[in-house]
C-alpha cells in the first residue's frame, strides 16, 4: 500500500482502499506466515522415488519413446532395472518421468481400463488420443484439489493411420508435438531433436538414431541418467519394446587436463 507522507489511513472497508491509495485486494498485500502450512493443510510434499527424462520422437510412419531404466531416491540411484516406457495396448505406448509411486497408481488404473476395453470385445480399441485426454483430465483434477500426481508423461501411438505424440505434466497442461522431452531432456535432447524434426518429417532410421544420440547425451550430462534405457517403437506393424545401452566412451576423460 502506498504511504501518504508517513500517515497511514485505515481502509474504508475490508480490502477496500485507504484514502488516496489502491484497493487492497488479497493478493496485493501479503502477510507471510510461514508457521502455517501451505494453504492451510498438509500435503505429501513432492516426488520421492523418481524417474528422469523421457524422449519422444514422431517419424513419418510411427513414434518412438525412450527413457532410461533408473529410478532414483533423491541422490541415490535406487532401482537400476525398471521400465519407464510401456506398451499400453496395440495402439498406445507411454513413457513416464516424475514420481514412480504416483505412476504405479495411475498405471494400475490404466491397466484396468485396458482390461475392460479388451473384455468389451466391441472391436473399438482405446487410441492414444483417448488416453492422452483422459490423463490430462485426471492430472488437472488432481492439481485442482492441491493433491497432484507428480508426473510428466509422454503418450505416443497410432491414431488410426496417423502417428500421435503428446505430453501431459503435473498440472494437466498438455500439448502435442513432433518431438517431446521431459525433465533435463527439455534442455539437453530437445535442441538436438528439433534441429532435425523442423526440417520436415523424419524416417524411422533417423528417428532411431536421434533417440540413440539423445539418450547418450542425457547419460553423459544428466546426474540422474543411466546407460541402460528402454525404448518403445510403434507403427503400423505394431509395438516393439526393446532394451538398449549407451556405448560409453571415457577415453576423452584422459585428455581433459587443467582442472
Amino acid at each position: 500500500m502506498m504511504s501518504n507522507n508517513g500517515v497511514n489511513f485505515a481502509p474504508f472497508w475490508h480490502n477496500g482502499p485507504a484514502p488516496g491509495s489502491f484497493y487492497n485486494f488479497p493478493q496485493n498485500n501479503i502477510k507471510s506466515n510461514s508457521a502455517i502450512d501451505e494453504y492451510g493443510f498438509q500435503r505429501n510434499g513432492g516426488p520421492i522415488t523418481t524417474g528422469t527424462s523421457i524422449v519422444g520422437v514422431k517419424y513419418d510412419k510411427g513414434v518412438i519413446i525412450a527413457g532410461d531404466k533408473l529410478v532414483s531416491y533423491g541422490n541415490l540411484a535406487r532401482y537400476h532395472n525398471v521400465d519407464r516406457v510401456f506398451k499400453i495396448n496395440e495402439n498406445i505406448i507411454l513413457g513416464m518421468s516424475g514420481d514412480y509411486a504416483d505412476f504405479q497408481f495411475i498405471k494400475q488404473y490404466i491397466d484396468e481400463i485396458i482390461l475392460s476395453d479388451f473384455s468389451a470385445d466391441d472391436r473399438i480399441v482405446l487410441k492414444p488420443k483417448d488416453l492422452y485426454t483422459w490423463l490430462t483430465r485426471v492430472l488437472y483434477n488432481r492439481r485442482s484439489r492441491f493433491n497432484p500426481l507428480w508426473l510428466d508423461m509422454v503418450v505416443g501411438g497410432m491414431q488410426g493411420e496417423e502417428p500421435f505424440l503428446g505430453h501431459i505434466n503435473i498440472r494437466g497442461r498438455s500439448y502435442t508435438n513432433d518431438v517431446i522431452s521431459t525433465g533435463y531432456g527439455t534442455h539437453l535432447a530437445l535442441p538436438l531433436l528439433r534441429e532435425y524434426s523442423e526440417k520436415g518429417p523424419l524416417n524411422e532410421e533417423t528417428a532411431q538414431q536421434l533417440i540413440q544420440k539423445s539418450m547418450e547425451v542425457l547419460f553423459y550430462r544428466d546426474c540422474r541418467g543411466y546407460p541402460k534405457y528402454s525404448q518403445a517403437n510403434i507403427n503400423a506393424n505394431g509395438v516393439t519394446v526393446s532394451d538398449h545401452e549407451v556405448k560409453q566412451n571415457w577415453d576423452l576423460a584422459l585428455s581433459i587436463k587443467g582442472y
Binding site: P26, I30, Y39, F146
Partner: peptide
C-alpha cells in the same frame, strides 16, 4: 480447495 481464501489465495 484450501482454507482461508483471503490469505491463501494471496499466498498462491
Amino acid at each position: 480447495p484450501y482454507s482461508n481464501p483471503v490469505e491463501n489465495l494471496a499466498k498462491l
